[in-house]
Structures are given as structure tokens and as C-alpha cells.
């Protein structure tokens, strides 16, 4: 049954996911070309110096990309369910409704995760090509908060789409905007690393938090 559910999610996501995949590839290409250009223009050791000691990040284009992708995927997945409250069709299927919503969210998070892995691998590969491996390694904890911001944005957007009442929608919008903005604090590589465990705790909480909003969606029937 979950295969069937995943098929449904994939049907909604496929074009958006493909587009996002291409955009993420494009971002990686931009990073590659940016580094190539600056290394051609300046001395390699100066570029290294900027990257190591001045904390210049050459993968800046990835900063807000997971966040935007999260919002787009959430919309792609849940707009068709919310318009005309079509999700009632799925909610009536013989499966526990929390489990159903949970699986739908997992499907979305999985696609977001694939793009995150793509970002991590391509960034590391590009950095390995031009820099010592320490820089590629340092990109991981630097990218993780941005990726987590994508998960938070995704779950926040689902919250907003499912929530039937406007005041609560505004409240959640503020809460999730605040939460995702935390992920962009500081600058340079590894700034947020000591707080990573805290950040990684936010996503499971947000995932759990959506379930009750799902119930409200289900029961917040018309009139």
C-alpha cells in the first residue's frame, strides 16, 4: 500500500523534482565555474588562503537553494491535495491517517534528501578537485544547516497548507520563518557546527508537529 502512496507522491513531484534536480546541478556547475575562474585569475595559493583563513565560501549559491526547493516540493505535493480538499480521498483509504500523512511527508523529505546528497557530493567533489581534502570535509557541516533549513521550510510549508484556520496559519508562518532563519546565522565554514545536534533535532519535531495539523485539516470540514 505504501508503494501505491509513493507512486501518487511521485506523480505529483516528478516534474518539480526534475526541475529542482536540474537547478541543483546548475548551481553545482556555477560553483565549479566560479572557482575555476577565480583560480585562473588569481594565484592558487591566494584562493586557498581566502578559503582557509579568510573563510570565503565558494559554494554560496547553495545557501538558500535547499530552502527554496523545500518550499517548491511542499507546494507541488500538497497544493493538489488541499485544493478542493482532495486529500479527503486519500484520508479515506484504509490506512491509519497519521501514518498516511507521515508516509506522504517521508516521500517529500526523501526527494529533498536526494537533492541534499547531490549537493553534498558535488560540492565535495568540486572542492576536492581544486582544494586540499580538508576543505571538502569542512563543506559538509557547513552545508548541513542549509539543508536542514530546507527540511524545516518543507515541513513548515506543509503546516501552512494543511492548517485550516488563518490565525494559526499566520502563527506557524512566523514560527517556521524564525526557525529556518536560525540556520543561516554566522558566516564562513563550520560556524554552526557546535549547534548542529540542536538543528538536527528540529526536523523530527517539525515532522511530528505536522500530524496534528493533518488532523485539523481532516476534521476542519466545510461548515
Amino acid at each position: 500500500m505504501w508503494q501505491s502512496l509513493f507512486m501518487k507522491e511521485w506523480l505529483k513531484l516528478r516534474w518539480y523534482f526534475t526541475a529542482a534536480f536540474l537547478v541543483h546541478l546548475g548551481a553545482a556547475l556555477k560553483i565549479l565555474l566560479d572557482i575555476r575562474q577565480i583560480i585562473l585569475m588569481e594565484h592558487g595559493e591566494m584562493v586557498w588562503y581566502q578559503a582557509i583563513h579568510l573563510h570565503t565560501l565558494f559554494y554560496g549559491p547553495l545557501r538558500y537553494l535547499p530552502l527554496i526547493t523545500g518550499l517548491v516540493l511542499a507546494a507541488a505535493q500538497f497544493m493538489p491535495e488541499v485544493s478542493g480538499r482532495r486529500m479527503r480521498i486519500s484520508l479515506h483509504l484504509p490506512m491509519d491517517q497519521n501514518r498516511m500523512l507521515f508516509l506522504c511527508l517521508l516521500a517529500g523529505l526523501f526527494h529533498l534528501g536526494v537533492l541534499a546528497v547531490l549537493d553534498l557530493l558535488l560540492t565535495a567533489a568540486i572542492l576536492l578537485w581544486y582544494f586540499p581534502h580538508e576543505l571538502a570535509l569542512a563543506s559538509l557541516p557547513t552545508l548541513l544547516p542549509w539543508i536542514n533549513a530546507g527540511f524545516i521550510a518543507y515541513l513548515g510549508a506543509v503546516h501552512l497548507l494543511l492548517e485550516p484556520s488563518w490565525p494559526r496559519r499566520v502563527f506557524y508562518a512566523l514560527v517556521f520563518t524564525a526557525l529556518s532563519s536560525l540556520h543561516f546565522a554566522g558566516s564562513g565554514y563550520g560556524w554552526l557546527t557546535p549547534a548542529l545536534p540542536f538543528f538536527l533535532l528540529l526536523s523530527p519535531l517539525a515532522l511530528l508537529g505536522v500530524l496534528d495539523t493533518g488532523r485539523r485539516f481532516r476534521q476542519g470540514g466545510v461548515s
Binding site: S4, P80, M95
Partner: peptide, 18 residues
């Protein structure tokens, strides 16, 4: 109401599993 993003065949496949 039906899932507009599905085709006839996909609709059948989707519901048949349940």
C-alpha cells in the same frame, strides 16, 4: 473529486492496491 494529476490507468493502479 479525483486526483487530477493522474491518468485513468494510474487512478486504477493507485486505488487497486488498497
Amino acid at each position: 473529486q479525483a486526483y487530477e494529476f493522474m491518468t485513468i490507468a494510474q487512478t486504477e493502479t493507485f486505488f487497486s492496491r488498497w
